[in-house]
Write a protein that binds this DNA or RNA. Sequence first.
DNA 1: AATTTGAATAATGAATTCATAATACGGAAA
DNA 2: TTTCCGTATTATGAATTCATTATTCAAATT
Lengths: 219, 219
Amino acid sequence: MEKIQPRSLYLEVADRIRDLIEQGSLLPGEKIAEKALCETFGVSRTPLREALKVLTSEGLVENLPNRGSRVVRLTRRGVKNTYDVMGALEGLSGELACQHLTDADVEEIRRLHQLMVGHYQRQELAPYFEVNQQIHECILAASNNDVLIEMYNNLSQRVKRIRYSVEMGPANWAKAVADHEAILEAIEARDGKRLGDILRAHLGHKLEVAAVSGIIDEE
Amino acid sequence: MEKIQPRSLYLEVADRIRDLIEQGSLLPGEKIAEKALCETFGVSRTPLREALKVLTSEGLVENLPNRGSRVVRLTRRGVKNTYDVMGALEGLSGELACQHLTDADVEEIRRLHQLMVGHYQRQELAPYFEVNQQIHECILAASNNDVLIEMYNNLSQRVKRIRYSVEMGPANWAKAVADHEAILEAIEARDGKRLGDILRAHLGHKLEVAAVSGIIDEE
DNA sequence: AATTTGAATAATGAATTCATAATACGGAAA
DNA sequence: TTTCCGTATTATGAATTCATTATTCAAATT
């Protein structure tokens, strides 16, 4: 029997707003009108405002006293900073994962890797990204460190608004796949140090790609 | 002329509650009675509840639906996880700092380092910790990465409740000072990679020390 | 015409009120 | 005495109300 777990309204609302930001219904810099959102969600201002405060402390929204909330703008510098930190966290996740990965885990990652390479060869961008992310999530989960997972997910959320899909050039893509070959090797060798180093470096390439995307401000 | 910057009430309240948790007036696992806190702060429940939600998303407080908020308990595992992540972040801060440190910065760190060694030789624990923290903050600030700083401060806040002062044994202390000698050398050589590695390892020692402290649960 | 002033309007911040779920307590039954 | 049940009390969740601060826009002044 499955437990029913009561969730607070403000968490629900926060999730919904996160979705709106992620999919681009709420754009960076855009003012968030409380009344309007209350009506679309069918809740009062209290839980909505609580949700906005949570999102503010998550770094997705900023709050100007007496002037309401807006979606934070992405700057090139801010995105670079975020990726740098994510790289460090991924590096740690790699080191820790190697201490915990079971043979079954490795097998699963190998399977995903092959799948991903297939998508690359057939130039199927969206599925490629999908599986790519699954691999990184696998490693992250295997780190067995929930603080790490929480931090990474927070940062990840902040840059999820960037859509790489169209801008991914062939050179970058090839490099990413090459990185992943090395990642798989390190995992199979359970070489935590090496896996960490590769993962730390791996994220660096995404940045130049992201920079050309539309929604980043040049401050 | 200095600008006056309006701060929201809920932020003020959040700061105050953070202080209460840090100094131990609110103990891990303790239930936070809204009414009582409202009276001590002289505010209504609305800003207080908003503050509690912020602290929840910061990981200092947990929120059980319909059953109120409590201060999160520190577990040995949780503290280890936190230190692991902080270590990774410190490592990154070292690498980045080496790219930005001016000669004046290095001179300042050298000064702090000598000061700290002096405190060590005279076995002045509290001042030692004070200066020690200043050094790490210097490096962190020099990273020029505000996302990193924000993340680190959040994690740091979570474990600030642990008081190491009394438990620091002579062996651990000597090792910590030795680490710091290596840190200074790496900084003077502007060797980001090495500084990063040292800092990543440096935090590991704190854990055993923390474990014997009183407020950690064995879950 | 451009800028400033001030009233009207709208939005936010915070307190209060109302509804609902959890806890505490007292009595009844085993 | 111990356990169980039902009521009273309390605390929390969320909506509403009130107060204050911004914003808008028209009129007045330079």
